[in-house]
């Protein structure tokens, strides 16, 4: 039951990681396009994809933390107490991003300031959210009696913490640009394709370097977790393999859809390898999935609701994707 709960949450988080990365990166590229004068090449493409789906992105995040409250109330308690300030700052950034997207897209299209806020938050949010994963490694929260204290200065001076931030940002840009490459090729927009493919090829190197950096600094920060990650070497190996395939396809300049799927697999295996090797901890050393799990009855109720919800959502999402993502005429701007 505990494993099932954490797996559902981890799937939500992975879903958020992917759709949010596409969204965050696209925001950055849209802003970059505006200031470098490439706006007409890529921004149309970006807004055609983003407009119908941005809210969906936000929901994945809500799912994750609501699921955490439901499945692991104690973990929510610790994080809630400790993360008042960093959590609030992330929230404010998310709020600015979501509303300014709507303001600039439906309201005044010309405003560069709105677009700047939208683009800049796209990089700041993954940076700030990724610190929650850093904190879960332990060493940044201490329990003093009834209080849970967050050691902010320690977080800001930790090399591990910064390596995670770097990885978060470059992954966002890489995932996003490899998705946009695929999207541009579907739209048969050669000009945009050339540009976003260049982005993808540019960010592919930093992505792999940053992941190695995170591995190395994890070994210093939390040797126990590092050891367990080495035991799951095959998952990370698979991740690397998929990464190589994606790289080759991008270089050769064909099968962009397959290449993006390879990127998804790359992150899937790395993310689940990371998660699995950190079990049973949700927050070292205070909270494990066993110590914080909710009661049986609620666990079953949530899983039932989850399955019923999926039965409703998967066909709906299918419809959304069919109308906007796989409808070639729509992508090309004919509809």
């Amino acid at each position: 039951m505990e494993i099932l709960g954490i797996s559902i949450l981890w799937i939500f988080l992975f879903g958020y990681l992917i759709v949010a990365s596409i969204d965050f990166g696209a925001g950055f590229f849209a802003f970059y396009g505006r200031i470098t004068g490439h706006e007409h090449v890529i921004n149309h493409l970006i807004s055609r994809y983003l407009s119908p789906v941005w809210e969906v992105t936000n929901v994945f995040f809500v799912f994750f933390f609501v699921g955490l409250i439901g499945f692991f109330p104690d973990a929510a308690y610790y994080y809630g107490t400790a993360l008042l300030i960093p959590g609030s700052i992330s929230l404010i950034l998310l709020a600015i991003r979501g509303s300014f997207y709507a303001f600039s897209n439906y309201g005044s299209r010309e405003s560069t300031l709105y677009l700047f806020l939208y683009g800049a938050t796209g990089l700041l949010i993954p940076a700030s959210l990724s610190t929650a994963l850093t904190i879960s490694e332990g060493g940044f929260l201490v329990k003093e009696g009834d209080k849970v204290v967050f050691l902010a200065s320690k977080l800001f001076t930790s090399p591990y913490s910064w390596s995670v931030v770097v990885l978060a940002i470059v992954s966002v840009l890489f995932i996003s640009s490899s998705f946009l490459t695929y999207y541009a090729s579907r739209a048969q927009d050669r000009k945009a394709l050339g540009l976003v493919r260049k982005f993808a090829l540019f960010w592919i190197g930093p992505t792999i370097l940053a992941s190695l950096l995170v591995f190395a600094s994890l070994g210093k920060h939390n040797p126990g977790h590092f050891e367990k990650a080495l035991d799951l070497w095959y998952l990370f190996g698979l991740s690397l393999l998929f990464f190589c395939i994606a790289f080759i396809l991008l270089i050769k300049g064909k099968r962009y859809g397959l290449s993006f799927i390879m990127v998804l697999f790359q992150f899937f295996f790395a993310f689940f390898g990371y998660g699995a090797s950190h079990l049973p901890y949700i927050l070292e050393p205070y909270v494990t999935i066993f110590s914080s799990h909710t009661n049986e009855a609620m666990g079953y109720a949530l899983v039932t609701a989850f399955i019923a919800g999926l039965l409703l959502l998967i066909p709906s999402l299918g419809l959304l994707l069919r109308l906007f993502l796989f409808d070639a005429d729509y992508i090309k701007g004919k509809k």
């Binding site: 609501v66 439901g70 949530l302 609701a305 989850f306 919800g309």
Partner: peptide, 8 residues
Amino acid sequence: SLPLFMET
């Protein structure tokens, strides 16, 4: 937490 989850 069940209705919270279902609300989402």
